[in-house]
Amino acid sequence: MESADGELVTRVLHGDVNAYGVLVSRYRDRYARYAVHMLGNREDAEEALQDAFTRAYRSLSRCEEPERFGAWLFRILVNRCRTSGARRMRRSQTFVHDEGALLNASEEHPAEQTMWREEIERAVGELSPDQREAFLLKYVEELGYEEMSEITGVGVSALKMRVMRACDRLRVLLKEVHSG
């Protein structure tokens, strides 16, 4: 039977380290996506996520709402991604290594599909970190602006502006690719 986050956090706080493993397996893939897109490659994303889990463990007693462990962890991850320094451009390693996902891609035009993905990833990588963060939180993680504001500490209007600019920039970047 699946345990709720609050219960698992309680068990960890009482010294049951294995219960933390359940939380790790519950959130690792869910949040890996954000880290991968934000940092641009799997290696840095795994490092950031690993760090976020470790930080969360160390400060678990300060998690005020254990049943919302996931949201709390996500906030730590977002902060961690911000401070991980310049995005290292390892484009050749990006996503193309996600072979499982690629196998599920359209089989009709696999080459086009791969190219399109690379273009998207490259364009997302060209966004400023602020714009990329706002775009990913809004559209990929499907958060509301209030939630985004609480996570990032940035006002709603500024976030809206960042998302709008990110969309504009993506449009230009993707058009450039196709026209030139």
Binding site: V24, R28, D29, R33, Q50, F53, T54, Y57, I120, L170
Partner: peptide
């Protein structure tokens, strides 16, 4: 935009060893 988002929303599955690596750190802590 929807196509871009759909693509970015594809699941990312980490290697099984990820959990082990985290738990090694956690147990040490």
């Amino acid at each position: 935009l929807e196509m871009i988002v759909q693509d970015l929303q594809r699941p990312v599955v980490l290697d099984e060893s990820f959990e082990r690596r985290v738990m090694v750190r956690v147990r040490r802590l």
